[in-house]
Amino acid sequence: MPEALIDAIRSQLEKRISMKALALPMLPQVTTQVLSLVNDVNSDAAALAKLIQSDQALAGHVMRIANSAAYSPNAKMTSLQQAIARLGMQNMSDIAMAATMGPKIFDAKGFESLVKQIWEDSLATAVWAREIARQGRRNVESTFLCGLLCQIGRPVVLQTVIDIANQDELTIDEALVTQFMQQYQSEVGQQLAKHWQLPVAVGHTIEGINSTVAPSHSADVVATVKAAQVFAAVTLGDRNYQADSLSADPTIIEMNLYADDVQQLLEKAESIHNTIAELSL
């Protein structure tokens, strides 16, 4: 595509971003309700079970994952209350959020496989972030959601660029949209986080995930998600885990994860792969 046309698309994209005129997708109502329950200190397992049961498709999906080998290798559960009691509200809410978000909420005709790839990368990052937080005895509660949504601006940029190209009857390729996603995902993602009224740590993670500047807010969570991306890259690649090379990664060093910590995480790799696979279905 001629540079002049690329610049024209960029100009229109930047105009929509600056004017906050992006077509932001709606967060599914049940996801909003799950988030609200998880952040409510007075909520309990019964309330979460009732909410999930209000959507039969979601309830079936959540129970299937809860009973998978990744979450319940030794015993099957017959009710949501039992699943929540055994796995905990945080695990069950993570499953519910992963089930209700995903590629289906974005309109990216012709680039469905790219949106799916972004989502699978996000799931891998979320699962590893949770494990890294546990390993480092850090706050686990927000790390899964922050990992899951750290690059949520990408598909929004993608669908906006598609819309601009369609209006001008232009043909765009994956290399071009990838360039735009990389450049604008942080600003767009932060707009979406505010639109969805997500926890502030999610916005901080979106802002800091690709920044070389040390984050001024939620630094611990941002560092955890960055480290998770290192593990996720191998998960989605050849799975040739090398404890020494991972331990030497600057992002891992910043997390104060030592060789023994990395090795202990790698010993959970098969279980983590299974969890990612279950959540991505």
Rank of each mutant, 00 (worst) to 15 (best):
Q182W: 12
V262N: 01
A243Y: 01
R16A: 01
S36Y: 13
N274P: 05
A269T: 00
I172P: 07
S280N: 08
A126N: 00
T224E: 14
Q90R: 07
L22A: 03
C146A: 15
D244N: 06
S18F: 11
Q183H: 08
V34Q: 02
Q81V: 01
Q135I: 05
Q53D: 15
L281Y: 13
A201G: 00
V30A: 00
C150D: 07
N166T: 12
K194E: 12
N256I: 12
Q29K: 09
K109I: 14
D55V: 10
I172F: 05
A248T: 01
A85W: 02
H195E: 12
L266G: 09
R10P: 02
P103V: 12
L22Q: 01
M181L: 11
I162R: 03
M63N: 09
Q33S: 10
A129N: 14
Q33R: 13
T251G: 02
V41F: 00
G88M: 00
V127M: 04
T160F: 01
Q81R: 00
V161K: 00
R138H: 09
N42C: 02
G237R: 05
E131N: 13
I105H: 03
E174L: 03
T32I: 00
T143K: 07
I52Q: 10
F106M: 05
D220K: 09
N210V: 08
L176K: 00
I65F: 13
N67F: 03
I95R: 02
D260E: 14
I206A: 09
D7Y: 06
N256M: 13
S142R: 06
L114C: 09
T32E: 08
L198P: 10
N274M: 14
V234R: 09
I105M: 14
L123D: 08
L80V: 08
T251H: 11
V188D: 05
S142L: 12
D7M: 02
S271F: 03
D44S: 09
D44V: 02
M101V: 06
S79V: 06
M77P: 03
A46K: 03
A85N: 06
A57C: 13
T143G: 08
R130W: 15
G136C: 06
A98D: 01
Q82N: 15
D107P: 03
V188C: 10
V38G: 04
E254I: 12
L13R: 01
A228H: 00
Q33I: 05
A232E: 14
T178N: 13
L192M: 03
K116D: 15
L266P: 11
A201H: 02
R154H: 10
S271Y: 02
A8Y: 12
M19N: 13
E278G: 04
L236Y: 06
H217V: 10
L5K: 04
S79G: 09
G208E: 14
L22W: 04
C146K: 04
T275A: 13
V188R: 04
N210M: 07
T160A: 08
A75S: 07
V177R: 08
K76H: 14
V225T: 13
A70E: 02
G88F: 06
Q56M: 11
I209V: 13
P199G: 05
I276A: 13
S113E: 09
D7H: 07
P2E: 12
M1H: 02
K226A: 07
K226S: 10
P199A: 07
E131S: 13
N166S: 14
L27D: 11
Q82E: 15
G88S: 01
T224K: 10
H61C: 11
E14A: 15
R134V: 03
L114P: 06
A83T: 05
L279Q: 10
